[in-house]
């Protein structure tokens, strides 16, 4: 999957898990998801589970920090790294 496609998928998951009534494309790659879109630990958890199911990857406890999950760009980078490690 291309980098752009991965980012679009992350945006779709953000919209689904936050029940946002916006088009995924309206989320900017570098929007701070917590500050701009109200992502909290509950819906971030749902995003994480969905990413694991969709991409066949597994996150570790140490992956969970505010910076790593702050933007679409940073989440996509983590997914790419996990895919490379798999």
């Amino acid at each position: 999957m291309s980098d752009a496609a991965l980012r679009e998928r992350v945006k779709e998951l953000v919209v689904e898990c936050l029940f946002l009534d916006v088009a995924p494309s309206s989320i900017n790659d570098d929007d701070n998801l917590m500050e701009v879109h109200g992502v909290d630990s509950v819906n971030l958890f749902e995003i994480v589970v969905a990413l694991e199911e969709d991409y066949g990857i597994s996150f570790e406890d140490e992956d969970f920090d505010v910076e790593t999950f702050s933007t679409v760009t940073s989440i996509a980078a983590l997914v790419e790294r996990k895919q490379a490690e798999a």
Binding site: S41, L44, V48, D61, F64, F69
Partner: peptide
């Protein structure tokens, strides 16, 4: 596994807001 992870995520992601930091023993 997921329930424990959710707990870890919540603590890690809220640590900067004054939440509880995990120590080695806690993990």
């Amino acid at each position: 596994t997921l329930t424990m992870r959710r707990s870890v995520m919540r603590r890690r992601l809220t640590a900067h807001e004054g939440g509880v930091e995990l120590d080695e023993e806690g993990e």
